[in-house]
Amino acid sequence: MLFFTVFELVAALPYSYSEDLARTVAQLGALAHCSPEVISAWSCPLCKKLPLTNPQPFGLPDFNLSGYTGTMGTRLFLLFRGTEPESVINWIEDLTFEMVAYPHCEGCRVHAGFFASFKALRGQYFDRVQQAVSAGKEVVVGGRSMGAALAVFAVLDLARTFPEHVRVSYNMGCPRLGNQQFADWASKQLQIYRLVHWNDIVPHLPPRTLNYRHISREVFYDEPMANFSLCNDSG
């Protein structure tokens, strides 16, 4: 679980990096690993520290895909569950690197499995986002590891439909998602922050040798999570 302190941002961006919001997304993202029953009840010790209302889990159990939505103040949070910590090594060993065409930008290709998983889950949360936007809510999307991959595809999709309400995403340990054309295009759409801890292996996959590239705005934290660097072109 990630906890942050306040440091000066080194670059002025239209929607500046917020450590407070990153902390909130990280904590909410950790709770995405809980059972649907726990999420719905919102009564665990960490839950009680986060004033989230109307938590609603979603998922496809047969495919081990899940997440939840919930409201906090003027925001709707959309969180995707990441890879279980005890299964990260198996997930890495089973990871394939096939790319498919991405429909929204010319020449863009993305990881076939991540994109298929996003498309499978989209119908589980889209109506909730639409309702929140109709009520004037800002939508914040996040996740970790595989959940971060799903969050990026989700936020890009939602920003196309609700550009005034979907403008930022915070993701922890996001893998590379597509080729250079996709990375360049996605980086221009909205503020997507990739939080990376110094020794996390997941952001190094899939490998650059297979033409995978990261979207920009990496927020790199040192070992004790005491300092960060903002890297706009981080490959």
Rank of each mutant, 00 (worst) to 15 (best):
R176A: 04
D62N: 13
M146Q: 11
H197L: 06
Q124D: 01
E106D: 02
T96Q: 15
E93P: 00
S134V: 08
D222H: 07
A151Y: 11
C174W: 03
T71N: 09
R23M: 08
S229W: 08
I215N: 02
T83Y: 10
V152S: 06
V140N: 12
A183H: 06
F63M: 13
F118L: 13
I192N: 05
I201H: 01
P57T: 11
F162C: 04
Y221H: 12
S16G: 04
R128P: 01
E106A: 03
G123Q: 10
E164N: 15
L95G: 02
L150W: 09
S216T: 08
P207R: 13
S18R: 04
A26T: 04
G136L: 10
C108N: 09
Y17C: 03
C105P: 06
Q27A: 14
G178N: 10
M1T: 14
L177H: 05
T209K: 02
N211S: 12
P57N: 06
C174D: 04
M172S: 07
A154Y: 08
P14G: 03
Y125W: 13
E93M: 14
I92C: 04
V168K: 14
P203Y: 04
E19I: 10
H165I: 05
E93T: 12
L50N: 07
A112D: 08
G29L: 02
E106R: 13
F4K: 05
L121K: 00
A159F: 03
L50F: 12
K188A: 14
A183K: 11
P163F: 09
K49E: 15
V140T: 10
P45Y: 07
T5F: 01
E8R: 12
P55I: 09
S216D: 11
D127Y: 10
N179D: 08
A30V: 08
L9V: 13
E8C: 09
M1P: 12
G147Q: 14
D200M: 05
W198V: 15
V38T: 14
F153P: 00
R144K: 02
F77T: 01
L2E: 00
H214D: 00
L21Q: 13
Q191K: 05
A112W: 01
Q189I: 10
R81W: 01
S145M: 14
R208D: 02
F7H: 07
N54Q: 15
G143Y: 11
